[in-house]
Design a protein around this nucleic acid. Structure first.
Lengths: 194, 194
DNA sequence: ATCGTCATGTAACGTGTTACATGATTGT
DNA sequence: ACAATCATGTAACACGTTACATGACGAT
């Protein structure tokens, strides 16, 4: 009586890129570099503190097969040859589309690191006006997340929140206030250095 | 010329629990409940906004096999029977040990949700004095993370940070200030309601 | 000599999600 | 009748980490 599962083929040629793949496109937009460079730049960046060889090298291979990036073998005597990757037009286009996409609720709540990486890369790919637009959209979603949280809390009212649950709600308020303050501050700085 | 990889057996009986397993122990410490309850309580909690059946039910099975939790089949007429799970002594002990463990740098930087879940559950398992100790330790790690970031920035000085990179550093300062303010606030409130 | 760093890569594994199945009961 | 909710569960998959291999160079 077993029924076969309908597994939809993954369409590897046309599927949406994974976050890590977009992040790597972003690193290459900042500067053409090798897999080794990318791994070491992770600690300087804002997306994860580290990355493993087992994730970076396969991703670079995939992106190259998709013709989103290209590589040149940089051979210098007395050094191991390095494979330096560069963005190709199709990769630039896909990256820009990703950067311009307004942040989702999920990105604001659970993927803060991705949002910040986008902001970092945006300097090299978007115009000042587009960055300001993105910040406006980001601010709206942060404000909406506060409203969402309030709604959830109101829904549980009646049971009465425990002391620690109340304190955690304060933590979220502090966090959201800090982000809104940062947005205001950044908008002002970006406008003043036009 | 192939050499076999030395794969260390995973010792499933004695291995460290995964974060999700500890988180579920924590939910059961707050209140005995079913897998379905746990999934629905995720949005009220602070660890992830959602959880899938494919992760929760297998974890509950594993924890029961390890004798960390027990289940009673709650049969009420006119309702589907629910499997209500409860912490067993071994589970309580393991959970308490986890809650008392001072937060690591990784927990502060990348696993804020886990830290907050611990704080939520701590109300039900630790004494007020232990919670205050935990907050002290948490404060120290937050301060240390600020110092770590400063060190990394100083190391890259010379190249000169880009405008967006500077703004992101400000975002981190805002974030850390907010967390430190919350810690101070919470300590005061916890002390005043002894 | 041996260690640390540069540099690229793969095999096995762990762990969570997606998408399914099942089936009863309650609301429209 | 039909959808939504309650409630538990599994198979296939996606994605990243750990731990390995390889090999050359510079420093102690």
């Amino acid at each position: 009586m077993r029924t076969k599962k309908q597994i939809v083929s993954a369409h590897p040629q046309t599927r949406e890129l994974t976050p890590l793949e977009y992040v790597i496109l972003g690193f290459l937009a900042i500067k053409p570099q090798s897999g080794y460079d990318i791994i070491n730049n992770f600690e300087l960046g804002v997306y994860r503190a580290s990355a493993s060889t087992g994730s970076i090298y396969p991703v670079l291979k995939r992106l190259e097969k998709l013709e989103l990036i290209g590589s040149t073998l940089e051979v210098v005597y007395e050094t191991r040859p390095r494979k330096v990757y560069t963005l190709r037009p199709a990769g630039e286009q896909l990256l820009d589309e990703w950067l311009r996409r307004p942040p989702s609720m999920q990105e604001v709540i659970e993927e803060y690191d991705i949002a910040m990486h986008k902001f970092l890369v945006a300097e090299y790919r978007l115009s000042r006006a587009e960055v300001l637009e993105w910040l406006d959209a980001y601010e709206q979603v942060v404000t909406a997340s506060l409203a969402l949280r309030s709604a959830i809390i109101k829904a549980t009212r009646g049971e009465g929140l425990s002391l620690h649950a109340q304190l955690i709600n304060r933590a979220m308020e502090f966090e959201i206030d800090a982000r809104l303050a940062w947005i205001k501050d950044s908008q002002a700085r970006l406008r003043s250095t036009l």
